[in-house]
């Protein structure tokens, strides 16, 4: 019990530092928020008034406290650039897009990696295994933006099978949404597939050395049956853990893909706000991303020991 409390305390400390750090960093931005808000050419008095309004003359910690207390109630403030939207609303609109992208990408990666890993593990050191291994290393060496560009070149422009830079909200139509999400999800899935395939393949090869596999073979069960029925499940635990962590990781990493495909997600939100000097939005967005990231990782950490029955078995 004490351990749990310690972890929670650590978590809160981390979140506190992250938000404070972001706040401080953003306050160092070059652009003058008053100018950003009102535009050029106003009088100094007007700018001064805006700065007073935004509370920019208060000490850092006071401002931080005000912002934080508002944030905890869900109010992340208003953007300083036109149109002066509520940030929480914008984040609420952008977050599902990023989440959907992350989930779809992960799902596709899962779909691809299982057959590849099984095929490789069937004959370790054989042709397929070596080819898949080299291919995985190769794919991991392609930066995501390059992969995205290549995919666009081939599938969108070249063959014209998929559109680029369009988006339909999920609420507006599932098929359309999936159609538009396919290419960006594929781009994300590539790197994830490469990583998962290697991990799953290694796990499978280890599991296949176990005695119960030999026992199954001695019962006359065929290789396909053994692979699916006996080998896959025990090997999938570390994969599932990594997927969980990957999901958390993806929340921030979809930035490039969103930018390439011009999707209205969190990444585009942050980049756009950063470029426009909209520091309040950057603060809010980074906070949300960091919170989700930290919470997801903590959750995975906590459940890992529980999920794997082999670890559970040690206590039986």
């Amino acid at each position: 019990m004490i351990r749990v409390l310690k972890r929670v305390a650590e978590l809160l400390a981390v979140l506190f530092i992250v938000s404070l750090g972001t706040f401080w960093l953003v306050s160092k931005m070059d652009s003058d928020p008053a100018v950003t808000m009102l535009g050029e050419g106003r009088t100094e008095a007007e700018y001064a008034a805006v700065r007073e309004d935004l509370g920019l003359n208060d000490p850092l910690l006071t401002r931080y406290w005000d912002w934080l207390s508002n944030a905890l109630t869900g109010d992340l403030g208003k953007s300083v650039v036109p149109p002066y939207n509520g940030i929480s609303d914008r984040i609420a609109a952008a977050l599902p897009v990023s989440l959907e992208l992350a989930v779809l990408g992960m799902g596709m990666a899962l779909l691809f990696c299982i057959p590849l890993a099984m095929w490789s593990a069937y004959r370790p050191g054989g042709r397929v295994d070596r080819a898949v291994g080299a291919g995985a290393l190769g794919v991991l060496s392609i930066p995501s933006f390059l992969a995205g560009l290549l995919i666009i070149m081939v599938l969108a422009n070249g063959l014209g099978w998929f559109p680029r830079a369009q988006w339909t909200r999920l609420s507006d139509g599932v098929w359309d949404n999936l159609y538009h999400a396919f290419l960006p999800a594929l781009t994300i899935a590539l790197a994830e597939t490469a990583m998962f395939t290697r991990i799953l393949r290694n796990d499978l090869v280890t599991t296949l050395q176990d005695d119960f596999i030999l026992a199954a073979k001695a019962k006359g069960m065929g290789p396909k049956h053994i692979m699916f029925s006996d080998a896959l499940r025990p090997s999938s635990f570390s994969l599932m853990t990594l997927m969980g962590i990957g999901l958390g990781r993806l929340i921030g990493s979809t930035v490039i893909v969103e930018y390439l495909f011009a999707l209205p997600g969190m990444g585009t939100l942050v980049i756009g706000a950063a470029n426009a000097g909209d520091f309040v939005t950057v603060q809010g967005a980074v906070l949300v991303i960091a919170v989700m990231y930290v919470l997801t990782n903590a959750l995975i950490d906590a459940s890992y020991g529980y999920l794997d029955p082999r670890i559970r078995r040690a206590h039986v």
Binding site: D210, D211, F212, L214, A215, A216, K217, A218, K219, G220, M221, G222, D230, R233, P234, P309, R310, R313
Partner: peptide, 22 residues
């Protein structure tokens, strides 16, 4: 494979590991 488990059976040494834990 049609022999194994049908006409010839094998009992292994370690019952802990000869059964699939999941």
């Amino acid at each position: 494979r049609s022999l194994w488990g049908a006409r010839i059976g094998m009992v292994f040494q370690d019952p802990m590991t000869a059964l699939n834990p999941v």
